[in-house]
């Protein structure tokens, strides 16, 4: 019904909406939740112990595998020419650098524009200029990927109606744009 509302009569949609908006029995739901919790707690103890033992076993196996792999690597490297070993080392170091350079994305949830821009601008060493100070308190949901550069962030912010961000000479400029209203 959700995918093809056109296939249903208004009456059918109305009755589905009635059903979806029906008030649930919160007391019964809480009791159900509580009983599930106690079941999990009681049965969970041996499971957690078993799970911990499995984790320890996995860690031991992992360490053994790493040791074997290290020993094998050392043996192989010793057999090869110094020049080739140096090249391989360089490649590994470069790869490690690339991995450590990746910065995890940051999710802002219902956070004021002012706070978001302060954090972002400080990361890129930029300043912020508001055309209209009142927009500072507007709250946004946005994911910022610090490793993708300020332009990427600005493009994402400009997807929101009512604001236009631009970037000139070490400054992020925030302008207010009048949003167009759209009716059905």
């Amino acid at each position: 019904m959700q995918e093809h509302p056109e296939l249903y009569t208004e009456h059918q949609l109305e009755s589905l909406m009635e059903q979806l908006d029906k008030e649930p029995d919160v007391d019964a739901a809480w009791q159900e939740f509580e009983s599930k919790l106690s079941l999990n707690t009681d049965a969970g103890k041996p499971m957690r112990w078993y799970s911990s033992m499995r984790k320890i076993a996995a860690a031991v196996v992992g360490i053994l595998l790493v040791s074997v792999a290290t020993f094998a690597t050392v043996s192989i490297v010793q057999k090869h020419a110094v020049k080739r070993a140096k090249k391989a080392d360089t490649a590994v170091v470069a790869e490690q650098k690339q991995v450590s350079a990746a910065i995890a994305p940051v999710r802002f949830e219902n956070i004021a524009l002012d706070s978001i821009l302060t954090k972002v601008a400080s990361h890129y060493n930029l300043s912020v200029n508001y055309n209209d100070e009142s927009v500072k308190s507007l709250k946004f949901y946005i994911t910022w990927q610090p490793d993708k550069g300020v332009s990427h962030f600005i493009r994402k912010m400009n997807m929101f109606d009512g604001l236009h961000l631009s970037f000139k000479q070490d400054t992020i400029y925030i302008d207010v744009v009048e949003a167009e209203e759209d009716g059905l």
Binding site: A104, P105, F108, E109, I111
Partner: peptide, 8 residues
């Protein structure tokens, strides 16, 4: 999600 700002 921990707090309002999260690494995902």
């Amino acid at each position: 999600s921990s707090e309002q700002q999260t690494t995902l």
